[in-house]
Design a protein around this nucleic acid. Structure first.
Lengths: 181, 181
DNA sequence: AGCCAGAATGTTAGTAACTAACATCCCAGC
DNA sequence: GCTGGGATGTTAGTTACTAACATTCTGGCT
């Protein structure tokens, strides 16, 4: 094995370099493939879309777990907000820097409006399941999870575009708002 | 004048009929244009995308106004949720029926994931402005507005796919969750 | 070493949403 | 009647993405 992983990484690297140079919309999938030394068809075998070259689903199981351990009487939005905080403590500076690069590219491409949320389906599903396990209705769980991820996405986009402030602060402020404070 | 409006309406009618018959993804823009008796190019002069044939921005100024008149000490998510309720009282049954048709089509098309939110940019902007006018920070306002619209969109999708329950009930339950109850 | 199965990749041809450039038409107002 | 400008048509593209089928490459077995 290995080759599969290597090609995938090569494609993602090529994509990020070109996105940075030419912008997201100025970069064609054909060119990404060429730079990775691979055919365009192969690109689409590794990534379902051009979008997913930039934004993987950032699903983090720690989030869902943390939500489960919130006090039982907490309303769903609050439980999500307080639970998610935990997962955001374990980021090292390199991860944060790369996240920022990706988000800046995403923020600059009009055709990527809503892309972050679109690529968080698995995360939303996991959070929804966590709420259901806490006894919240399936309907209410889905609504709360969608809302929190949307709010969080917006906060991250704002953070990426603004001055170099701490990502933790930005996320915490967002979660305060979403949790109803 | 008039012709411009007529073509636009003809296109939208043709689109909805075909979407209902063949599904969203099974309908090509070329075919919509043909049925409306117009060239494909003309279609794209009236609608920026295939998506927008199905989902216009449903911006309702009543919503933003209602948010403005909430008590000053209410936290942003609560103010949005409670404010928005008002705007949902004035829907007649015909509007609701058509909304349901559109949403069912949207729910059945995988490529339309997140489309409702994407087509609510103006609404989000208006709600953000309303919160800012109430003294909430620009950052927090955007986050809250994005979250509430996402939650509401999710609730509407659920409602459209489920049994024929009242839309008011569905929206009210969603707003309860979003408002932190 | 030589061979085999299956995975990874390539090639080719196509579809469909959208765009640019330029020609034409059609209606309103003089 | 004529004319100017907006609405439309035509043509020719670009780009993301897919289907079908051929080829190559790799790792394990004898």
């Amino acid at each position: 094995m290995g080759r599969r992983f290597e090609t995938r990484a090569a494609l993602q690297d090529a994509a990020l370099e070109l996105f940075a140079d030419l912008g997201y919309e100025g970069t064609t999938t054909a060119r990404i493939a060429r730079r990775a030394g691979v055919s365009e068809m192969t690109l689409f075998r590794h990534f379902a879309s051009k979008e997913s070259l930039l934004l993987d689903d950032p699903f983090d199981p720690v989030m869902a777990d943390a939500v489960l351990s919130r006090p039982a009487d907490e309303p769903p939005m609050r439980a999500l907000a307080e639970g998610i905080r935990a997962a955001w403590l374990g980021l090292d500076t390199e991860q944060v820097a790369e996240l920022r690069v990706r988000l800046r590219i995403a923020a600059g491409a009009t055709t990527l409006s809503g892309a972050l949320e679109r690529n968080s389906v698995e995360t939303v599903t996991a959070l929804t399941a966590a709420l259901v396990a806490r006894g919240v209705s399936a309907e209410g769980s889905g609504i709360a999870a969608s809302a929190v991820i949307a709010g969080l996405s917006r906060a991250l986009m704002d953070w990426a575009q603004g001055e170099e402030g701490g990502i933790q602060d930005a996320v915490y402020r967002a979660l305060d708002v979403l949790g109803g404070r």
